[in-house]
């Protein structure tokens, strides 16, 4: 699909927990073919301090309703300002941007691992991957139970596992401490992950060691989002690559991890 600059209507802005909001955006035009890992670059209407757009991974799409759902976690001034937007407001965004995760094959047994706002493309992938739910395992980590978003509407798409750093939900520790990761990893032939850099590195390095296919979705700081500013580069085995156009999804084997 051609990239466009679109004025979306903010249909709903729902607070999920302290720092996470779910924004439902409706496009005035129909669109198609948006896949997990792709993102949209949102203009934040603010005075001088927030100059650049903010990229958000797509959580869900509804082609009939012409809507895109975003998960917005407050990380700084830009995301905070966006969470203050009210229904009925216009939200300008450039979309669709970036390359998606490689969709799994029918026979794959996949482990999806999300942390923080990185759960957005992970849940989207769980929903649309088309696999038998018994072959889809989703591991989500957060600091504490109150930081986890409600995934009850996704439970039919796979088996879910949770970790928290304080033990208030699921296993105590990081996602890499969960038995599904540290004991049963050989059950899977594909790992997909999005989340904090350190989490993805730990997962990616394990995948490399165990020779398991693994894709990670990076979120380097970007200015444009469509490959002209060359600011968001990742130093890969084949040189600097733009996270916005060559990624954000990369196979760990291509990275210098």
């Amino acid at each position: 699909m051609k990239k466009t600059v679109t004025d979306f209507l903010l249909v709903e802005n729902k607070q999920l927990n302290k720092d996470n909001f779910q924004l439902l955006l409706q496009s005035p035009q129909p669109f198609s073919d948006i896949y997990p890992g792709q993102f949209i670059n949102v203009e934040i209407k603010e005075a001088t301090e927030i100059f650049l757009r903010r990229p958000f991974s797509v959580l869900d799409v509804d082609y009939n309703q012409q809507t895109i759902t975003l998960l917005v976690k407050i990380l700084g001034r830009g995301s905070k300002k966006l969470t203050e937007a009210i229904a009925g407001q216009t939200i300008n965004a450039i979309f669709p941007l970036g390359k998606s995760f490689t969709l799994p094959d029918k026979s794959d047994r996949i482990l999806l691992i999300g942390g923080g706002s990185g759960v957005a493309p992970i849940l989207f992938l769980a929903k649309i991957c088309g696999l038998n739910p018994s072959n889809v395992n989703v591991l989500i980590g957060a600091r504490s139970a109150s930081d986890h978003i409600d995934v009850s509407s996704y439970l039919n798409f796979g088996q879910f596992f949770f970790t928290t750093e304080d033990g208030s939900l699921g296993e105590k520790g990081y996602v890499t401490n969960h038995p599904v990761f540290c004991e049963q990893l050989n059950k899977f032939n594909k790992i997909y992950t999005c989340g904090p850099d350190l989490m993805m590195k730990a997962i990616g390095r394990t995948a490399i060691k165990k020779n398991i296919f693994c894709e990670v979705s990076l979120e380097n700081m970007m200015a444009c989002g469509f490959g002209v500013c060359l600011c968001c580069v990742e130093d890969t085995k084949t040189g600097h690559k733009c996270v916005c156009t060559d990624g954000p999804v990369f196979n760990v084997n291509d990275l210098k991890w």
């Binding site: 301090e49 927030i50 100059f51 700081m221 200015a223 600011c231 580069v233």
Partner: peptide
């Protein structure tokens, strides 16, 4: 080119 990070947002600019 130079190593990442290569960009910083600043008031009304970058």
């Amino acid at each position: 080119g130079n190593a990442y990070p290569r960009m910083a947002e600043t008031p009304s600019g970058m």
